[in-house]
Computed example of a mutant assay.
Amino acid sequence: MRFRTADVARVESTWKQFVPSAVLHDVDPHRLYFDWKSVELGELTLVRYDLAAKVRTTAEPEDQFIACRVEGPDAQLRSDRSELVASRPWLSDGPRVHAQWERGARVTALIFERASLQSLAQQISGDDTVALHVADLAPRSDRAADAWSRMFAYLEQSAESLDDDGDTELLRSELARHAAATTLATFSTTGRLHRHRPAQTTPAPATVRRALDFIAENAHRPITVDDVASAVHISTRGLQYAFRRALDTTPAECLRRARLDGAHRDLRSGAQSTVAAVARKWGFSHPSRFAVAYRESFGVLPSVTAATHRR
């Protein structure tokens, strides 16, 4: 999609098509110029736009990962966690990012659906249980930031040659995979912080996959490893052996991670509930142990997540 406009309403409605939480504040309509280009690459969207106007904008991804770079002579960026360096890319899967400029800026962004990027992270790590979350919105280093920017330029140039017919589907898929792999290498994510084992070279057995599905669907209930084994018609010892062989982990650890993920979703939802109540809901009876485990998985204390997303 490619167009130019001076209509403020169309600017915001277009951005919201791709990032529903995006909001434009205090746009000066008298000197607005908007030049938009976007390309769909499967479940990845590439966006590049120039917006000349006095602007304040906010994005808060929902079920998405947004990797974005803002270039402008007076552009300023910050998240609810910290200040961000303008002209360097950032990555968010939930924390709000605010940008503002007076004279104009170019915004380049890659918008990943959460399931798509998480699936790639699982393929790269060989761990079907990886739950991907952003640990730091800023890139790992200047070198990593430069590599991401070069990747985006290559992606944009390559996308120019794509047609809308089915013959380019494989190329679109490969470009999306390249973009995702480079983004994962550029930023710190908790999916990479606590997975240190050889890559899984074959798909997990059907029994393990069914067990993981049962855990995902029932982690909010007071189930045990014995319940998981019974649900997939295998002995507890057999289930433990299958998990160790396929995933190099235990059913108990997978259940624990699923419950941490559930608590993380609840805290991000903005619901008026205490951290202690959320911890109890997901089976963590000791608040201090829950806080330690949560920080190890998500990089911040649960109280920080709750305060950031409270309505």
Score class of each variant (00 low, 15 high):
Met1Lys: 10
Asp7Pro: 02
Phe18Val: 08
Val19Phe: 08
Val23Glu: 11
His25Tyr: 13
Leu32Asp: 01
Lys37Glu: 11
Glu43Pro: 09
Leu44Gly: 00
Leu46Gln: 01
Tyr49His: 11
Asp50Thr: 10
Ala53Arg: 02
Lys54Cys: 08
Ala67Leu: 07
Ala67His: 00
Arg69Val: 05
Arg69Ile: 04
Arg69Pro: 00
Arg78Asn: 03
Ser79Met: 03
Asp80Val: 04
Glu83Ile: 05
Ala86Met: 02
Arg88Lys: 06
Ser92Pro: 00
Arg106Cys: 12
Phe112Arg: 01
Arg114Tyr: 12
Arg114Ser: 15
Ala115Cys: 09
Leu117Val: 15
Gln118Ala: 12
Ile124Cys: 05
Trp148Met: 00
Ala153Met: 09
Ala153Thr: 10
Tyr154Lys: 07
Tyr154Ile: 09
Leu155Ala: 14
Gln157Asn: 08
Glu160Ala: 11
Asp165Trp: 05
Gly166Gln: 06
Glu169Met: 03
Leu175Thr: 01
Arg177Phe: 13
Arg177Thr: 15
Arg177Val: 15
Ala180Ile: 11
Thr182Trp: 00
Leu184His: 14
Ala185Ile: 01
Ala185Val: 02
Pro203Trp: 01
Pro205Tyr: 02
Ala206Tyr: 04
Val208Thr: 08
Leu212Cys: 06
Phe214Cys: 03
His220Asp: 14
Arg221Asp: 05
Pro222Arg: 06
Asp227His: 12
Arg237Leu: 13
Arg245Ile: 09
Arg245Tyr: 12
Ala246Val: 07
Leu255Ser: 01
Arg257Pro: 02
Leu260Asn: 14
Ala263Met: 13
Ala276His: 13
Ala276Trp: 08
Val278Gln: 06
Lys281Ile: 10
Gly283Ser: 12
Ser285Val: 15
Pro287Val: 10
Val292Ser: 10
Val300Trp: 01
